[in-house]
């Protein structure tokens, strides 16, 4: 599958999906005008790819500054896809947040607590 690299805008995150290396990341802001247009195709590609993996080492880095409630729904879906993939693979999910951002920390914990198979790390940064 071709790698996906979408540059960040003021309102949408940088999306960097390297399928060959099994490393994925979302970083920046997420309150886009059209949530399905931005995330629909990349989520589909990720789901298809992960569904075909077995025994792989997969890493997903979330490095978000702010996301709105519609994006939260997408993130919940991503966590779900990753946890399913972790049934047959080693999946590591890293949630990066600014150390003084209690809200982002709390949201990370909330998303992370539902993961049953994937390894979840909270990564504070200064």
């Amino acid at each position: 599958m071709d790698n996906i690299k979408i540059e960040a805008t003021e309102r949408s995150p940088k999306i960097d999906f390297n399928f060959a290396a099994n490393t994925f990341s979302l970083s920046g802001e997420s309150y886009p005008e059209d949530i399905s247009e931005l995330y629909g195709p990349v989520m589909q590609a990720l789901k298809e790819h992960l569904g075909s993996q077995e025994g792989a080492n997969i890493t997903f880095d979330f490095e978000l500054i702010y996301f709105n409630s519609s994006s939260a729904k997408i993130l919940m879906g991503l966590f779900d896809i990753l946890d399913t993939a972790a049934e047959d693979n080693q999946v590591v999910v890293n949630w990066h947040f600014e150390s003084d951002d209690d809200n982002m920390e709390e949201l990370g914990e909330e998303f992370g607590e539902d993961l049953e198979n994937a390894t979840f790390n909270m990564v504070p940064k200064d």
Partner: peptide
């Protein structure tokens, strides 16, 4: 609030909602 937030995020989008339907909870 946290529980409701997660419940809405995981569930189907309510009828008539164009976003996640979770805006007021947020």
């Amino acid at each position: 609030l946290k529980a409701l937030y997660k419940q809405i995020l995981k569930g189907d989008v309510p009828v008539g909602s164009k976003g996640a339907g979770v805006g007021f909870v947020d």
